[in-house]
Design a protein around this nucleic acid. Structure first.
Lengths: 259, 259
DNA sequence: CGTCTTTTTGAACGTTCTCAAGGGATGTGG
DNA sequence: CCACATCCCTTGAGAACGTTCAAAAAGACG
């Protein structure tokens, strides 16, 4: 069931020998994304240092180390998480194609969170030490980065509302709607169905619930016909109903720029 | 007790007739902040449209409306919150001097959150419609804005960890440490004591707890000697102990730029 | 086919919530 | 100056939601 997204690669990050030209970027004609113009593209291409592939389950960046690379997601889905000393894990957010990974690592000494690939993933790689240069020489790209940061902020706020104010079932419905919505922007999901392998343990760690309670609440949502979430896919048959159940207000999405 | 921070102003936002020159900005020699250089200051001064004062409890920006102004906090403390349709409220974060308020409103159609003054407050006002111009013509300022956005993101992530993984007492200890820490950066707090009026109801709405449980947990922390939080002040006698209790890892603060 | 991962179920326990009521401080108007 | 209103904190008690421990069933993978 889950094998469709599970990779067969051996371990470790690999910078690919070949190099995708930005004009052939897989993101270029994604409806939810706003492609850079000709001139920007040239500069991005110069900034880019290559690509990297990761298999499902691999660590892209490890919490606590200093990152030397920044990334844009070209294909696949990743998650950012934070570990506490006693082993508790909080999943902070999920990253989809077009997302810029590592804005914080561009500034911070070392990473306060780790990043793990949830599917086989293709990333565009930029050298961290040229980020400053990019931002200062290309105001428009810097502006877009700020835009993306503001969006990420908005998403985190929404998660915060979930954990603070919503009960288990509402949180699950919220997360399902969020994930299917984000995936739809980039064509990864269709008709309210997202084929993505997420374990209930991961869901629990995102929503601050125990595994057992996550399981029971998921069953309740399934019986209610609101969300059908299995290991390999997330289905939200009636988006409006699910949104209403989770008390989600209008959250209209505008096309995201990317770098 | 609480009167020291309660304002006597009449209601509503007021753009002041007088205008603080940026070289006399109250933020300019704040140790936790990184003042802009000469050239930047001139541009910021041109960008600035005036100041505004708000009294404790006043709404600076209302959720759901389109904002026309951006702000930098010059004096005082504010909070950002999000209301659900059924009246539940989630406080998202607190803003201290130097913070840029309204990055999201620079992009979004209308505000997904409201902003309320927690003390009498002095804000620097910028016109929203010139933000684009600022960002594009001054890469360095735009870069600083991105930096601030990354920091805000990091703070929200930490809050998320709290709500997801920490129990009531840990959350309270975390929040106390966070607030005292943030206030110390800008000289608002000293010796682990912050004079700031926060009701237990506000604490509850920030931490996703009921008012009653917040009260009881606060008493437990007081008895344990970890945090002494009253209506008018927050005291953390032993920062290291409180941080350890709340499972907070090293979170070194670097000076923040501001605009 | 055997092993590993993930989901499912049962049952007891605990944290946190809700409802309800009382108490203290502060402010206002008669 | 007192009566009253308001706001915030405090306390009690029962109920609900969610957790933990334990074990078994189901599914995925080689």
């Amino acid at each position: 069931m889950a094998s469709d997204v599970r990779g067969t690669n051996d371990n470790g990050a690999r910078t690919m020998p070949e190099r995708i030209r930005c004009r052939e970027c897989p993101l270029r004609d994604c409806t939810g994304l706003l492609a850079p113009d000709e001139g920007q593209r040239a500069w991005i291409e110069a900034f880019k240092s290559g690509e990297a592939r990761f298999a499902r389950g691999e660590q892209v960046l490890r919490q606590g180390v200093r990152a030397t690379r920044l990334h844009t997601v070209l294909e696949g889905v990743l998650m950012r998480y934070r570990l506490l000393e006693d082993g508790r894990r909080q999943i902070l957010n999920f990253m989809f194609p077009g997302d810029f990974v590592g804005l914080q690592s561009a500034f911070d000494a070392d990473l306060s969170h780790g990043i793990e690939a949830m599917t086989d993933t293709l990333l565009c790689v930029f050298p961290r030490d040229r980020f400053f240069e990019l931002a200062l020489s290309h105001p428009r790209l810097s502006f877009d980065l700020t835009w993306l940061a503001a969006r990420e902020e908005a998403a985190l706020e929404e998660h915060l509302v979930s954990l603070g104010q919503r009960n288990a079932q509402e949180r699950l419905a919220y997360l399902a709607v969020y994930l299917v919505g984000r995936a739809s922007e980039t064509g990864v999901a269709r008709d309210g169905v997202l084929r993505l392998t997420v374990t209930q343990s991961q869901i629990a760690d995102m929503l601050g619930l125990s595994l057992v309670h996550t399981n029971r609440s998921l069953q309740a949502l399934r019986r209610a016909g609101l969300v059908d979430w299995t290991l390999a896919s997330i289905a939200v048959p009636d988006m409006a109903a699910a949104r209403h159940f989770a008390q989600m207000d209008g959250d209209v999405l505008s096309p995201r720029p990317y770098i």
